[in-house]
């Protein structure tokens, strides 16, 4: 098991280097001179002389490869430079906004599980019944629903018409329900179908037949034998989804005025605050990769076949 984990961690190195390289290339896409943007945001007239000084200050006058290594050296020390707008360290600002996003994502994850496990399990056990059909329709609509619209519909019905939940603001659990549900619905729809398929595959296995022949209780078979196996593909997909949920929170945060990284990044894009944008993409990609690592390790723990396969 240790070897599996160590190998997995070593394989991250080229991935992380690739991510850093692409992130660095991205800033080169900027059609205007970042030095000029910096000056404008600092309300200094961008004369030729001032631009030249700022370029030297930001290291933009050096050759590209050297800029990359200088940048990488700082990034490894978690130094992403200062925001053009607030002049505060970008990393500190990201970490200031991140907990809100994390809280939102974690809450949606709970909602995804609360919806998709029962729906997935029961629609497999009662395959082709009316319940299964309803789950199918739910999954279909859920996967097609634009989250920015769903958010408004939920606010309109649950808050404005029925007055059950608060609309904006945060603090209490009630404030979390609407944004988290909005973020969760798409993934919940996907997982319901995924779990159903995976349950059906496992229900037809010989070990289930054997367990039945031994006279074990139906519920015990489903929970201990079928569900445990059926959850593996779901857990694998989870790593991906978590990353996508962290990213998808951009839209939900903007619908609900949720003070997380998503709102921060959109306002930074409008301000052309390039250091923030660059730090954001790197931060999210590293999160995405680490989440996938954790999920891989969990799967290795759940299923020896994966662990041993990875050892070769």
């Amino acid at each position: 098991m240790e070897r599996f984990i160590v190998n997995r961690i070593i394989s991250l190195v080229p991935v992380l280097l690739g991510i850093s390289l692409l992130t660095f290339i991205l800033i080169q896409l900027v059609p205007v001179d970042p030095a000029e943007v910096y000056l404008r945001l600092s309300q200094i007239p961008p004369t030729d002389e001032a631009v030249a000084v700022t370029r030297a200050e930001l290291g933009l006058d050096k050759p590209l490869y050297q800029q990359y290594f200088d940048w990488l050296r700082k990034v490894v020390q978690l130094d992403f430079g200062l925001s053009f707008v607030t002049k505060e360290p970008v990393m500190e600002e990201l970490l200031y906004y991140f907990p809100a996003t994390l809280k939102l994502t974690a809450a949606s994850l709970v909602i995804v599980l609360l919806i998709s496990i029962p729906l997935g399990v029961f629609s497999a056990l009662y395959k082709d019944t009316a319940f299964d059909q309803m789950c199918r329709i739910f999954a279909f609509i859920g996967a097609s629903m634009p989250s920015f619209w769903l958010g408004f519909v939920l606010v309109y019905i649950l808050s404005l018409k029925l007055d059950l939940l608060p609309v904006y603001g945060r603090g209490t659990l009630a404030h979390l329900v609407l944004p988290a549900t909005t973020l969760a619905l798409g993934s919940a729809a996907v997982y319901t179908r995924l779990l159903r398929t995976s349950m059906l595959e496992n229900l037809n296995q010989n070990f289930v037949l054997y367990a039945k022949a031994r006279g074990l209780k139906e519920r015990l078979i489903v929970v201990r034998y079928v569900l445990k196996n059926a959850l593996i593909p779901v857990v694998i997909a989870f790593g991906m989804t978590l990353g996508h949920m962290l990213a998808g929170s951009v839209i939900v945060e903007n619908v609900f005025a949720w003070p997380g990284v998503g709102r921060y990044i959109v306002s930074s894009i409008f301000n052309r605050d390039y250091p923030v944008i660059q730090a954001y993409v790197l931060f999210m990609a590293v999160n995405f990769v680490l989440l996938n690592l954790i999920v891989d390790i969990i799967c290795g723990l759940l299923d020896p076949r994966i662990r041993l396969g990875g050892d070769r």
Binding site: I19, L22, L26, I27, V250, Y274, V281, M284, A285
Partner: peptide
């Protein structure tokens, strides 16, 4: 591999951010 290492919405968002809305 490099491009797939990013969550796709994040990368889309950031490219738009760099190029301008």
């Amino acid at each position: 591999d490099m491009i797939l290492a990013f969550p796709n919405l994040v990368l889309t968002l950031v490219i738009v951010g760099m190029l301008g809305p």
